[in-house]
Every structure is written in C-alpha cells, then in structure tokens.
Amino acid sequence: MAVLPIRIMGDPVLHSPASEVTEITDEVRTLVADMYETMDLAPGVGLAAPQVGVPQRIYVYSYVDDDDRPWRGEIINPELWMTPPEPGSPDPDEESEGCLSFPGERFPLRRSDRVLVTGVDLSGEPVRIEVDGWRARIMQHEFDHLDGILYVDRLSDGDWKTVQKIARKRGWTRGGASWTPGVDDLEG
C-alpha cells in the first residue's frame, strides 16, 4: 500500500465527471487500499478517486456512528438519492465541512439530512447505505467529487469569494497542486 498525493482545488481531474468502473481488477483493489491508507493518514472521513488523480467512480469512507460503531467501506459506481435540504442558511456550527482537496479550511454548507447510496464493493457485491446527519453529509460530499464538484463550488457568494482569495494566495488556481499526507505540512 502507498500514500497517494491528494490533488488540490485547481486540478482538472477534480472538475470533471469521473468514469464508471467497468471491471474490478487488481489495479482497482490496489487503488482502494491506497485510498484507505491516504484517507487515514490525512486524516479524513472520505476520499474519492479523483482526489488522488484517478477519474473513476470510486470512494472510500470511514466514520463512527452514533452508537460508537465504526463504519468503513468503499463504493464503486455509486448512485445517490436524497431528500431535499431544508430551506435557509446553513448553521456555521452544525453544518460546516472541509475537504482534503481544499485543505485547512471549513465553510458552512446546507446538505440533505437523509440519503440512500447504492453501488458495489470490491467483491462486486451490492452495497446499500441509508444514513442521515453527518453520515449523509459524507456520502453527498464524496459523491459530488465523482461528478466534478467540490463542496466549495456549492458555497454562498460571500464564502465563494473568500475561497477564491485563499486559492489565489496559495497558488491553487491552476492544475498540478497537490499535497501528500505525512509528507507535506499545510498549516498556516
């Protein structure tokens, strides 16, 4: 297994829809193992293949549920259904999120509170996940990556302008920027 560089905001692979996985090969299995290792070291609760430069419809996740049970898995070729989000502005304390592809920042974003995700796992077995709250946010966030959408693309105009200033200051407006967990210090 290997820790992979995580692409940052301006990279074209993050802004294009990913391709379906047509066959679960040893290469796909290695990619998923590397994604878990990268996500864990980052640390993150989810990681999509485009974030490590691979334009395929795969993401991994890892979180602890409300009953302190760990949940960890991968979803290949996911489909997402969700209830409409509640109208209104997001609560900055309860509805903020961050992204490993826009590291070091968090912004409030309203998401649906309930989702259903289906797909397959590495064995080709069907996966069906119905979750709410924080877990639903993770699923929507990672699914967005597969459609070429970063959470910062969904922010209010004011927050979007702040994102643009940060990206310019850090040199993230062009492709090619990345960071490697355990290697790069992104503080400050």
Rank of each mutant, 00 (worst) to 15 (best):
A33Q: 14
R106E: 15
D159H: 15
R57S: 11
G188S: 05
S62D: 15
G73N: 04
A136D: 07
L80M: 00
D11N: 12
D153I: 05
L155D: 10
E187K: 12
A2V: 05
I24N: 02
H15P: 00
A48E: 12
W134T: 10
D66E: 15
S112A: 10
W71D: 06
N77H: 07
G188E: 10
V52E: 03
G148S: 09
V13R: 07
W81N: 00
L122G: 04
D121K: 09
Q56L: 15
E187Q: 08
S89K: 13
P108T: 13
P70E: 14
T22C: 01
T30L: 12
D40G: 03
R135C: 00
L31P: 04
R137L: 00
I6T: 12
R137P: 00
Q140G: 08
E130W: 02
P78W: 07
G88A: 02
L150R: 05
A49N: 14
P84K: 04
V64D: 05
G98V: 13
G175M: 11
I58G: 12
R135V: 00
V45Q: 15
L4I: 02
F107E: 04
P90E: 03
E23T: 14
G119S: 09
G98P: 10
T30W: 11
I58K: 02
V152E: 05
V131I: 05
E27G: 02
G53S: 10
V152Y: 02
R69E: 14
E105M: 14
M39S: 07
E37I: 02
G124K: 04
D184R: 03
L155A: 13
S19G: 09
G73W: 06
E79Y: 08
V3N: 03
T162L: 08
E79C: 05
D147V: 02
L80G: 05
L116S: 03
L146H: 06
S62E: 11
S96A: 15
G44Y: 05
G124A: 07
A18D: 11
Y59H: 13
D93G: 04
S156L: 14
I58V: 15
D121F: 07
F143E: 00
E130A: 06
D132V: 07
W160M: 15
P43V: 03
T173V: 09
D147K: 09
V54W: 11
